[in-house]
């Protein structure tokens, strides 16, 4: 039984590795009052992949607006940021 607090959304960040990506993305999430539950990141060569499990129940934006904003801000930082409601993973990976 997985008793970790469930995440309401997952944020996937992909880009070229550099100093401060987590700091930058975390700042965007804090600004929107999104709570980070878990972060996992890997760097292969100079490519950076991060998956964040988040709870956006108290966010100042709905998930669509959050996705729009993060995607746009990510683009400005050279990052691809994808925000997805956790329901999609539940549908595909749990019976």
């Amino acid at each position: 039984m997985d008793d970790r607090r469930p995440a309401s959304a997952y944020i996937t960040v992909i880009g070229r590795d550099r100093v401060g990506i987590i700091a930058d993305v975390s700042r965007l999430l804090a600004d929107a009052n999104v709570n980070i539950l878990d972060i996992s990141q890997t760097v292969l060569g100079d490519s950076f992949t991060m998956i964040m499990a988040v709870d956006h129940a108290k966010a100042t934006l709905d998930i669509k607006a959050l996705a729009d904003r993060l995607e746009a801000q990510g683009r400005g930082m050279g990052l691809s940021i994808l925000v997805q409601h956790a329901g999609i993973f539940d549908a595909m990976h749990r019976i």
Binding site: D2, R4, T12, D90, H93
Partner: peptide, 16 residues
Amino acid sequence: MPKGRFEDFEILETIR
């Protein structure tokens, strides 16, 4: 909200 968490490989598989 879905129960439990999803693993990285599941999330990356969906995105792929």
